[in-house]
Design a protein around this nucleic acid. Structure first.
Length: 154
DNA sequence: GCCAACGTTGGC
DNA sequence: GCCAACGTTGGC
C-alpha cells in the first residue's frame, strides 16, 4: 500500500463535498499533468491512503484523509468540449487523461495549516513543503503520513 | 492581485 | 532537440 497527497481547491471541490457525496465517494477529474497522471495510472491501488489538501484556501493545509476507491480509468471530462478540462487530444478510443475514485475517510477536527506543517522538523523532507513543488498528486512516505495523522490528533 | 517557479508549446 | 515565450499553480 502507498500513501498520497492530493490537492484540491475547496471552492471547486472540498472535503465537505466529498463527505456529502453519494457513498462519500467521488471521481477525481481534471488532472492535466503528466507526472500526476502517471502516479494515478501506474502506482495507485485501491485502498491506498490519501492526505486531502486544500490549496488556494485560507489557510491552505491538510484537512482530512481519504482512500483510493478505484484503479485509474479514462477521465471523460477530457472529451467533453463544454468542460473546462477539455483536451481534444484525448478520445474515448485513445484516452490521454485518467482519474481515480476517492472515498472519504476522515475530516480533521482542526486542519493542519501549511505554516504549522512547515514548523514540524520531522516533515522537512515532505514533497509538499519543498520549494517549487506544485504537483497536485504526490507520493507521501509512510513516516510522513503517520506524523501528519499524529499532528492532527488522529 | 502579485509573482516565483515550474510545465508546455512551438518556431527554428 | 533547443529554448524563448507563454500558461498555470498556488502561496502570500
Amino acid at each position: 500500500m502507498q500513501y498520497w497527497l492530493m490537492k484540491t481547491e475547496p471552492d471547486v471541490f472540498s472535503i465537505d463535498d466529498l463527505m456529502q457525496a453519494p457513498n462519500q465517494t467521488e471521481h477525481w477529474d481534471g488532472i492535466r499533468n503528466y507526472q500526476a497522471r502517471n502516479f494515478m495510472k501506474n502506482q495507485m491501488q485501491v485502498g491506498d491512503k490519501v492526505l486531502f489538501y486544500h490549496s488556494n484556501a485560507k489557510p491552505p493545509g491538510i484537512v482530512g484523509t481519504a482512500v483510493i476507491a478505484s484503479k485509474a480509468y479514462p477521465d471523460h471530462t477530457a472529451w467533453d468540449p463544454k468542460s473546462k478540462y477539455y483536451d481534444k487530444r484525448s478520445t474515448p478510443d485513445k484516452p490521454v487523461w485518467f482519474m481515480v475514485d476517492v472515498r472519504f475517510e476522515s475530516r480533521f477536527a482542526r486542519g493542519l495549516a501549511l505554516p504549522d506543517l512547515r514548523q514540524e522538523p520531522a516533515l522537512v523532507e515532505m514533497m509538499l513543503l519543498k520549494k517549487g513543488v506544485r504537483l497536485s498528486i504526490q507520493p507521501v512516505s509512510e513516516a510522513d503520513y503517520k506524523k501528519v495523522l499524529e499532528l492532527a490528533g488522529q
